[in-house]
Design a protein around this nucleic acid. Structure first.
Lengths: 164, 164
DNA sequence: TTGATTGCAAAGCATTTGCATGCTA
DNA sequence: TAGCATGCAAATGCTTTGCAATCAA
């Protein structure tokens, strides 16, 4: 039993909830991934393991995982929620490549410090923050430089597909 | 004719589009507001002036205003888009009070500089960024300190209402 | 004239909810 | 056994699209 599973079961017990096969499966699938899955993404993955699980249950469990501190909701602005691992994962921010959809995670203590300073200036008690930097990643910039028209076409399609 | 109206009409002409009474009205209503309206908010305001305007038109015009550089789309993470003035409005970031829904706009050159430095570190070509700081504003912190249980109740309701 | 624009209704997404049935504790 | 959990279908909220009618250039 992993630490995450223990955290989850403890949360479930504390809340007077019940442990079910679905919840265990959804947690396992979530833990086996990395990156930022949408509810739909996770549902598809769970479905591969057990097609009888409903997507409602996936959404409900995702909320449970968030409450238990195992998942963190991230919104990239496309109108749907994405989830990343939260347990023993430090806070970080994201750079999102608008060409290929790649997400770079980074952390800057200076950035955090200045945010804290700005909050203090406005007597604002900071709970959380989200920084999203959109642009073009190194790989895509390289390709762009050497790209012919047809290659550009391909990349546009790829970007659209990854946004899905 | 305001500068914004001129910008809009020039944009419309350049794109081979047509000027209509609805578009003019929607622009005027948008210009008369401040803050961050959702599509629905703007639709309601337009409706007060002319109930015959459809919300489809409002959404379409909002996109047009964005393309013309007059509006800027901001997403606060509640799943819907908000729009703020963009023409001759400097870039800024937002602090959002989770108690009363108030939005504080601020700008920090240091913050921008560090973001640029982080982007450079990852050879990431920055296009735009969004920083959202969530917490409790000075007013709500003050109230909280002196708050009785019943007042807390009231504030929770207010926060929920403002989120609407 | 002609193609852009409009408003309506309907469709789309992502997500949530109502509810009867099923299953843990 | 009690009441939480499940899955389905339907509902939701925001936004977009199809389409026939209308209108600006």
């Amino acid at each position: 039993m992993t630490e995450e599973q223990e955290v989850f079961h403890q949360h479930i017990q504390k809340q007077g909830l019940k442990r079910t096969a679905q919840r265990d499966l959804i947690l396992d699938v979530f833990l086996s991934t990395e990156g930022h899955l949408s509810g739909e993404d996770l549902y598809q993955l769970v479905r591969e393991k057990d097609p009888s699980v409903g997507q409602t249950t996936v959404y409900r469990t995702l909320r449970l995982l968030t409450e238990a501190g195992l998942a963190r909701e991230v919104r990239f602005g496309d109108g749907r929620a994405h989830y990343e691992h939260s347990y023993k994962h430090e806070h970080h921010d994201h750079m999102i490549c608008s060409e290929c959809g790649k997400i770079i995670e980074f952390y800057s203590p200076e950035l955090e410090a200045i945010q804290d300073a700005m909050a203090a200036k406005y007597k604002f008690q900071l709970t959380e923050h989200l920084l999203r930097m959109i642009g073009v990643c190194a790989d895509c910039r390289r390709q762009k430089t050497h790209a012919s028209e047809s290659q550009k076409q391909t990349k546009t399609v790829a970007a659209r597909a990854s946004r899905r």
